[in-house]
Every structure is written in C-alpha cells, then in structure tokens.
Simulated scan of single mutants.
Amino acid sequence: MNEVRTLFVDAGEDGVRLDRWFKRRWPHLNHIQIQKLARSGQIRVDGGRARPDTRLAAGAQIRVPPLPQAPPPRDRDQLDPREIAFARSLVLHEDDEVLVLNKPSGLAVQGGTKTTNHVDRLLSAWGEGLERPRLAHRLDRDTSGVLVLGKSPGAAAKLAAAFAKRQARKTYWALVVGFPKPGAGLIDLPLAKKGVGDREMVRPADLSDPKAEAAQTEFVTISRAGDRAAWLALSPLTGRTHQLRAHMLAIGHPILGDPKYANEASNALSLGLKLQLHARRLVIAHPSRGQLVLEAPLSPEMRAGFARFGFTEHEAPAEPFGRSRG
C-alpha cells in the first residue's frame, strides 16, 4: 500500500487496541513496525497522535500511512478445498456475529511446535483480517463439542467476557470409572500446574501455594453401568486448564480414555476408548440479541463409550443442573 488512507473503526471494534486494529487488517505487520509508525506520528486517531495501546471508539477516524507489502502466502499455509469443506462441515450455528463449531476429538484449538493442523488454521475458511473469526474460549485437544467464536472483535470480546464472568452455562458429558457417592455435588478443590512441557499436569493444591488457583466443578450422575462406570454431567464454574479431568481423578473417578489423568482402574476399563469428555451444551448471551442455546451431537469417540456401557443420550435432561443457575 503506497498511499495514505483514512479508515473508520467499525461498530464491532469498539474498545479494541490500536495495534490490534492494525494487526487484524494487515497481519503481516509486526509490533515493532506498528510502534514505529505510531511513535513517528504517521498513524493518527481523529487527527492526533496515539499510542499502540490506545483503545479505539466506534467511528473513530484512523490515518493509515503507506505500509510494507505483505509477503506472498506460503502454499503450505493455504487451505485446500477439502480442508475448507471440512471446516464448514463443523458449523453448528452461524450468524453475522457468532460462529459455533462442533470441534472433533483430536483436533487442537491452536497450533504449537508440533501441531500444524488446528482450529485456528481452519478459520481461514472464513477469510483473513476482519473476516477471520476469533476464539472466545478453549477446549482440550481430545475434548469434543461446542466451541464458540466471535466474527468481529467486539463480538469476540463480549463472548469472552461472558466466560470470564461465569455468565456462560456449560454442560459437559463424561464417562468415568465407578460412580461418585453421593451422585451429585460440588468439587471445590484448588489446582496448580506441576511439571514442564509434555509432563505438565494440574494437581490439587493448597491455596497457600503461589501457583494454586481456585477451581470448582458441579457434577450430576445421569446414568450408571452397574458398579463399573457412570455417565456424568459436569459443569465447570471456573475455567482452569484440565479442570474437569483433574477434579474427577482427585475424587477417585477419572474420566475414561484419559491417558494423563488416570488410575489403574480407569486404564483397565478404557481399553480401546478415546477421552470420554464432550462439551455437550452451552447457554450464553448473544453479543447483541437474546440468548444462544447450543448443543453438539455426540462425537464418534463418545458414541463408542455409550455403546460399550449401554447408555443412550435420551436419558439425559436438557438442564441436569436446573434452569435457575446463573
């Protein structure tokens, strides 16, 4: 881009930082380049100088100076038609502000050193820059089910805030070894990350531990397969890493198919099963109108577990924790 342009902040971008506003339109720009343009006064907001961390208001006028050209895309980063079709096949709900996917088990949400295929990459099926949806929360790689994204910065921020403020009602289904007694309750057990890299796990910890974080999980037993296994509804009231998996192991009923948070009994019963944890239902306020009630059908991995123990999804009430929870 070789000319100076004037652009306006979209209504869905109200409150976004100036540097992020630039990155969403021109992803090839790095933070140092944006900082230099702002510091030298080449970037201006409503006619005045602005810092990269300035929060923008809807309708603000941005002076955009000539920018470096983006490098040509690398072929390996481009989605082929089959990948685009696969990404689109995951859609549970889509409107002008919200995208909801049924994330498969085994697909990471974001990339890493050894992870090249992930949800974040597949979002290129919707476009780049402002057209690219943004994650509002996360799911573990091997957890299937409802994954919510915002289709504008403003929508993503409102959805993420609902999760952060515990205003989203989340219901997971899990198959566990044995069955809890009592069959319903609240696990209020702080967790702390221990270990490094692939060996990192979250474990119960005392709140005096500087790494400990408060963690609460509601659970309700939906059905039992004798003394061997139980089907539970789980609701994380906090959003700690691996919270549900660590909490179930801590009370002696680890989730089946979990190679990391397991005991001898769950390992024996899990033969041939993948992680039996599914983000089944989510109730969350729409960014601009009403409420979204989202459900994901059982994944093939969960269907295998249900078939093994004789469970049918029709046994479960829509709201196992009641409708009065906030």
Rank of each mutant, 00 (worst) to 15 (best):
Q69I: 10
R166K: 14
R132Q: 11
S124F: 12
A161L: 13
E313H: 04
A184C: 13
E213M: 11
V4H: 12
S144L: 00
H118D: 00
G112S: 11
G195C: 13
Q291T: 15
A161T: 10
F163N: 11
W126I: 05
F8E: 14
W173I: 02
Q69R: 13
M1G: 15
R63M: 04
A161V: 00
N2T: 15
G59C: 07
L232F: 04
H242R: 10
N2W: 08
W231G: 02
A205G: 11
L135A: 05
L191R: 10
L234N: 06
R82V: 07
R121K: 12
R55P: 10
T238R: 10
V9Y: 04
E200I: 06
G310W: 03
W231K: 00
G183Y: 01
R44M: 11
S299N: 03
L271D: 05
L249Q: 09
Q33E: 14
P52E: 01
G129I: 09
A304H: 01
K23H: 09
R169G: 05
R132D: 05
K181Y: 00
A285M: 07
S299C: 04
W173N: 04
K36H: 10
R323K: 14
G310D: 02
E97F: 14
G112E: 03
A157P: 07
A250P: 10
L237W: 03
P210V: 10
L92W: 00
L234Y: 05
D120C: 11
D227H: 13
D77G: 00
L18M: 03
M1W: 09
E3G: 09
R224K: 12
N267C: 06
N263T: 02
R51G: 01
P66F: 07
A161M: 10
E200M: 15
S208Y: 04
L107F: 05
P68I: 10
P104V: 02
F306C: 02
E295M: 03
L7T: 14
D96W: 07
F309K: 06
L277M: 06
A285K: 09
R138D: 01
L101T: 01
G195E: 12
L101F: 01
R49K: 13
R240M: 07
L123P: 02
A215Y: 06
R20E: 07
S40C: 08
L67V: 12
K103E: 00
R166V: 09
R20Y: 01
W126P: 06
L282I: 13
A262Y: 03
D209Y: 09
V146Q: 04
P104L: 03
A225Q: 01
P27I: 06
N267Y: 03
L186K: 14
A70V: 08
L79F: 02
K114F: 09
A108P: 02
D80W: 06
S235W: 02
R240L: 09
I34D: 04
T171S: 08
I43S: 01
E3W: 11
D96E: 15
I255F: 04
F321E: 06
A168M: 08
N267Q: 15
A125D: 08
I187K: 10
K194Y: 11
I255P: 01
E13K: 08
G111Q: 05
A192R: 15
L123S: 04
R303W: 01
T241N: 07
R76E: 14
F22D: 01
L234H: 09
E97V: 09
G183K: 13
L275E: 03
K193W: 07
D80V: 08
K103Q: 03
F306W: 06
D95M: 09
